[in-house]
Structure formats: structure tokens, C-alpha cells
Nucleic acid binder design. Structure first.
Length: 500
RNA sequence: GGGCCGGUAGCUCAGGCGGUAGAGCAUUUGCCUUUUAAGCAAAGGGUCGCGGGUUCGAGUCCCGCCCGGCUCACCA
């Protein structure tokens, strides 16, 4: 028999022994008096004297370590990312409970009742008087010292990662704080949270290839949304002047350190403002999110310190000049000049050329949180033109850590212009651009009823979480990132084999 | 999709020159009533990712495949 099966059989056999000792292998409700984190916080710094008179506690947690010393022993229980030691001695508990302690496996979930004390070496511990068995682990836990290192297993069996690697747990706690911070800040400013379709008959609001699915009853193909944008703006037309949505977008594209096919986006729309207003709002939101998530505005990322307390601002043209490397640094006249742009890019139009040059020259250097504004109209089918420079639109993106983390603009609310933009996109599609927008007449119809001047913005929650948690890959901030299916697992077969 | 790297005990990793497969943790047994990567003594545990091939002999060499990581191209 393989070791793995031997261990499984051993634990399976142990279930009966646990039951013979008067416990259930898969126990019932257990009302603890204190969570382990609360005990650590409240009593972690108390001296031995301050812990008397005896404080009785009932705690519960997963067994992390066991150190048996004959007629006594120690174990660590973990709950919510914190650990507390228990001390079990044969003359302090019933014979059955001591036997139970002796047959505990690392990974079992137990409850313990006793009083707080400090050991000779000074560690805050529970002097156990009663044990209660709560749940049996049948498989062995990852190694105690190194944790779970196998990257594939960390993603496929995230629960093991969360049990074994406290840092991984912290990442997801921080992610939750980031989202909570956005919600709180937006609610304070009068935004309401809405939910718009994830399955859409037409996809739009971004340039990307969609996933396609099918609805049987209606017998229609639907697209998983690539963005909620067009629906959110319909709501602004309807008088929901400040709306936001935090939810998944789906894009049928490659995987990479900053790409997962489903990712979480915050989008918010505010009537009667424009992209300048959103720049200021973005700076406030990001600063406070960093504070709420990490306690400060500065984070270490990829060896650099990023400060979310202030956002640098460059126009796209300025950024090309600012971050140009090598000789022939262009002038402002150069980056405005169609001939110069044509010489430095293979793109057809001046606008696409500028965007392409910017991405090549500047994007990877935008480590510090930076706003890049005034984008070419060709790459922005839903943004309003600048009044004095119609080849540009009132749009900005937020970059940090060399990644785009936000995208915002003054929304185009002129239905006639919107129709022309869609038709331009259709032309691009006919020339082979698969990602060009489709015509969305229902959206144009909504604009025909009049949308107030509006600013809208999207912030990539996953990437922002990467930055605020020091994660080098998006898979470390998504609980269950997309992986190929792993094939035969064989657990059912192994469990079946245990039964008589 | 291309290139590079990896898959060895439940976990973390050695081995690589082709010649009976190793360590630590974990597990089992014994001793141990304030230990903490507890300690001491002993034991068990492996289709070396999968499938072919070369060879007297393959974890090791060759070919194909699977899974993963990094990276390039496309993409937020």
C-alpha cells in the first residue's frame, strides 16, 4: 500500500476511536467565548501575573502543530490567521480527552476549554480542561516549515494555500479591504451600487474578444460582458446620476502575469462632471484605498516604492517626450506632426500611431502612480472630443507598476457623434480589426433621450490589489485563477475503498 | 502559439557520470508533565508526470504527450 493510502486508512480507522471516546468525528456547533485573534490581541502582552485570576476561555481552531511529551503535550490551534498554543496534561483532563489529544492529527479541527496562562518560556497558552473534537482531516497537511510551495497546488487547492501560507490569506483579506474601501467611499459620495447584465446580446464598452454562450429557451447566442459601461450609462440617462458596479468582466484572451480571462472591475459614473473632475476623485479614492488596505500610502512593488498619496499627471504627448529614451527626443511639435508620427509607427492613423508610440516608449516606465490624459480619438470610441483639439478626447488612464489600472473619460453624450463613431468602428472591423466596436443602436437610442454631461471611470481591482499586496502575478490575487482541468482526481475511488 | 525551465515519499527538496532511490518535516512504535522547526531510539513509506524507444540494465540518454512556471507575441 502506498504511504498516501496508509495515512488515509490510519485516519479513517481513527474516526472510530474518536467516536469510542465519546466524540463525533464531524462534530456539532461549538460556541467559543473568544476567537483566537481576539485572545492574541487582548492577552498577548499580558504578564503571567496579569493573567490571574484564571480566565476561562473556550476556543476552536485547526491543529497546526503537536508536541507530545509523554503524559503532557502542546499543540497550536489556528483560527482566522492567528495561532494559540494549548497545553494538555493527563492530570488536568479526563482520560478520554487525553487519549483524544494523543490521537489528534495535524489538520484536525478541535475545540478546547481551559484557562489562559503563560508557559515557562513565556508563550501565552490555554491550560486545557476539556477537549471537543469538531472535524477530522483525512489527508495530511502541507509541511509546517516551508508551507505549501507547489504553485499549481496553491491555485488548484486554494484552501490548502490559505491554511498553510499566512501571507496568502493576508492578500485576500487586503483585497476585501480594497473593495470595501471603494464601496464606502463611493457610498459616502452618493453613489449607488447597481448590477447590470453579465450576459449581453451585444458586447461593448471595451475593445476585446468576448466569450460566447447560448440561451436555450430564447435560442439566442449571448456574450459574456467585456464591460458594463454601456448599461451603466443607460442608467445615467435614467436619472441614476451616480452609479457604480463592482463585478466581473470576461475577455477571451491570453493569460499572463496581469491577465486573467475573468477579472474584477469597478466602474462608476457621475453625472455633471468631466474627466478633470474624475482625476481629482481618482486621486482621493486611490489614496484612501491604499490607507484602508495597507495603513499607508506607500507600497513596495518590484523593488520600487510607489506612493498612492499623489498621482503624477502627463498628457499622452508629454509622456512620449518625458519618457523618450535615446537620441532625437521629440518636441511637442513633433508629437503633433502626422509626418513624425508616421515615421515612428506603422499604424495607419496619427492617433493610433501616437497611442502605439506611447505604449512602446512610456508605459513600462510608469511605476509611480501616474495619470496619462488626452488620448487620440481613434482609440476611444465612447469618449467626448476635446473642444479645442477634436483629434483628441477627454480621456485618461491611470498607470502604476508599469500596468494600466484605470481608465476614465468624459462620456460622449451626443447621439449623432456616437453614431458616427460606431460607424467608424464598423469600418475598422471590416478592415480586419476583430476588436472594434459593434453598433449598439439601443445605446444610441438611450443617448437620444439626453444623457447629462458625465464622467465615467473603470478601475481594475485585481491589478490594484497586486500593487497593494506586492503580488507579482494576478493569480496570487484571484482565489481561483483559470487553469487547465487537472483530469482524474480519484478521491471518490479512494473513499469508496475505505468502506466495507 | 514560440522559446526557456520544471514535475523524484503526504509536504519541502537533494541525486543526474546509465549499475539495488536519499534527507528533513509528516506517519508508526518506545521514553519523556512548561515544549515550540521539542529531544532521543527504532520502523514503515516511491509505477522518479505519462507513453514509446536505445541498452544486458533507464529516475538518469532519445522521441512523443500531459501539467505547471517564466518569457515573447495579442490583450485591462
Amino acid at each position: 500500500m502506498s504511504l498516501e493510502d496508509e495515512l488515509l486508512k490510519q485516519r479513517w480507522t481513527r474516526i472510530r476511536e474518536i467516536e469510542e471516546l465519546g466524540h463525533r468525528a464531524y462534530g456539532k456547533r461549538f460556541d467559543f467565548t473568544h476567537s483566537i485573534p481576539r485572545i492574541v490581541a487582548e492577552y498577548g502582552s499580558k504578564t503571567a501575573e496579569e493573567l490571574s485570576p484564571e480566565l476561562k476561555v473556550r476556543i476552536a481552531g485547526r491543529v497546526k502543530t503537536i508536541r507530545s511529551k509523554g503524559k503532557a503535550g502542546f499543540a497550536h490551534l489556528a483560527q482566522n490567521g492567528e495561532q494559540l498554543q494549548i497545553y494538555v496534561r493527563s492530570d488536568a483532563v479526563s482520560a478520554n480527552d487525553f487519549r483524544l489529544f494523543q490521537i489528534l492529527d495535524i489538520g484536525d479541527v478541535v475545540g478546547a476549554e481551559g484557562y489562559l496562562f503563560r508557559t515557562r518560556t513565556g508563550e501565552l497558552s490555554v491550560h486545557v480542561e476539556r477537549l471537543e473534537f469538531l472535524s477530522k482531516t483525512l489527508f495530511s497537511m502541507p509541511e509546517k516549515w516551508h508551507g505549501l510551495e507547489d504553485v499549481e497546488m496553491r491555485y488548484r487547492q486554494r484552501y490548502l494555500d490559505l491554511i498553510a501560507n499566512p501571507d496568502s490569506r493576508k492578500v485576500f483579506v487586503t483585497r476585501s479591504k480594497i473593495i470595501a474601501s471603494f464601496r464606502r467611499q463611493l457610498e459616502e459620495r452618493g453613489f449607488i451600487e447597481v448590477e447590470t447584465p453579465m450576459m449581453q446580446p451585444l458586447y461593448g464598452g471595451a475593445t476585446a474578444r468576448p466569450f460566447i454562450t447560448h440561451h436555450n429557451a430564447l435560442d439566442i447566442d449571448l456574450y459574456l460582458r467585456i464591460a458594463p459601461e454601456l448599461y451603466l450609462k443607460r442608467l445615467v440617462v435614467g436619472g441614476l446620476e451616480r452609479v457604480y458596479e463592482i463585478n466581473r468582466n470576461f475577455r477571451n484572451e491570453g493569460l499572463g502575469f496581469k491577465y486573467n480571462p475573468e477579472f474584477t472591475m469597478l466602474e462608476f459614473y457621475q453625472a455633471y462632471t468631466d474627466y478633470r473632475g474624475l482625476m481629482d476623485l481618482s486621486a482621493e479614492l486611490l489614496k484612501q484605498v491604499a490607507l484602508d488596505a495597507t495603513g499607508g500610502t506607500e507600497v513596495e512593488w518590484n523593488g520600487a516604492r510607489l506612493d498612492f498619496g499623489s498621482l503624477r499627471r502627463f498628457s499622452m504627448r508629454e509622456a512620449v517626450i518625458e519618457f523618450w529614451e535615446g537620441a532625437d527626443r521629440p518636441t511637442l511639435d513633433n508629437v503633433r506632426d502626422p509626418q513624425w508620427l508616421k515615421r515612428h509607427s506603422s499604424k495607419a492613423s496619427s492617433g493610433e500611431a501616437l497611442a502605439e508610440i506611447f505604449e512602446r516608449v512610456a508605459e513600462s516606465q510608469l511605476g509611480q502612480p501616474t495619470i496619462i490624459y488626452d488620448f487620440p480619438v481613434e482609440t476611444s470610441p465612447l469618449s467626448k472630443n476635446k473642444a479645442d483639439e477634436p483629434e483628441l478626447v477627454e480621456r485618461f488612464e491611470i498607470f502604476a507598476g508599469g500596468m494600466e489600472i484605470g481608465n476614465a473619460y468624459t462620456e460622449l453624450n451626443d447621439p449623432q457623434e456616437q453614431r458616427r463613431r460606431f460607424e467608424t468602428q464598423i469600418g475598422m472591423r471590416e478592415r480586419g480589426d476583430e476588436e472594434a466596436h459593434q453598433m449598439d443602436e439601443d445605446y444610441v437610442r438611450a443617448l437620444c433621450y439626453g444623457m447629462p454631461p458625465t464622467g465615467g471611470e473603470g478601475i481594475g481591482i485585481d491589478r490594484l490589489t497586486m500593487l497593494l499586496t506586492g503580488s507579482r502575478t494576478i493569480r496570487d490575487v484571484i482565489l481561483f485563477p483559470l487553469l487547465r482541468p487537472e483530469g482524474e482526481i480519484g478521491v471518490a475511488e479512494r473513499l469508496r475503498a475505505l468502506e466495507p
